[in-house]
Amino acid sequence: MKIRVYYEDTDAGGIVYHANYLKFCERSRSELFFEQGTTPTADGGHFVIKHIDAEFLKSAKLGDLLDVKNKILQLRNSSMKLSQTVWRGDEKLFDMTAVLVFAKEGKPLRIDRDIRDFLTSLNL
């Protein structure tokens, strides 16, 4: 997913504020579903972040065009492990691995079959 860096994404020094990399990754995860006319929710269940490992490698700046790439590393009954990277051209700027749990009312839930089939079909 392509993301342009706007003034609102930057800090006083003109570089992307660290928390915004997480927002860019969130948008990209959601967009995987939205692009296909679907949603990452089912019967009141939705994905929540359980754990994140993040590494900030280089800074993005105002006006940069970034590309967020996603790769499913593991798909389990109620969770998935996902790798997300942010690139500017051929430069990797940000690297994150996240564990997302499918939950309803704060409790883990088996991932809905349609969502599981969709995730499997992505071949990320």
Results as ranks from 00 to 15, higher is better:
residue 65 L to M: 11
residue 104 K to C: 13
residue 20 N to Y: 02
residue 2 K to S: 07
residue 65 L to Y: 08
residue 29 R to P: 03
residue 9 D to S: 02
residue 23 K to S: 03
residue 47 F to I: 01
residue 103 A to I: 07
residue 73 L to W: 02
residue 120 T to E: 13
residue 27 R to P: 03
residue 66 L to S: 08
residue 55 E to A: 10
residue 96 M to N: 14
residue 112 D to W: 00
residue 84 Q to P: 00
residue 60 A to M: 09
residue 79 S to D: 11
residue 78 S to N: 05
residue 123 N to H: 11
residue 1 M to K: 15
residue 10 T to P: 00
residue 109 L to S: 06
residue 14 G to R: 01
residue 43 D to E: 10
residue 19 A to K: 03
residue 101 V to P: 07
residue 39 T to N: 13
residue 107 K to G: 05
residue 82 L to T: 03
residue 115 I to K: 05
residue 88 R to A: 13
residue 97 T to L: 10
residue 69 K to Y: 14
residue 18 H to M: 06
residue 2 K to N: 02
residue 25 C to E: 05
residue 39 T to W: 10
residue 119 L to D: 01
residue 3 I to K: 14
residue 123 N to E: 11
residue 70 N to C: 11
residue 17 Y to H: 03
residue 79 S to C: 11
residue 13 G to S: 01
residue 87 W to F: 12
residue 53 D to E: 06
residue 74 Q to W: 10
residue 22 L to V: 02
residue 86 V to K: 14
residue 90 D to K: 15
residue 55 E to R: 15
residue 119 L to C: 02
residue 90 D to R: 15
residue 79 S to Y: 15
residue 22 L to H: 13
residue 48 V to Q: 05
residue 23 K to G: 00
residue 25 C to N: 04
residue 75 L to V: 02
residue 18 H to W: 10
residue 92 K to A: 03
residue 7 Y to D: 00
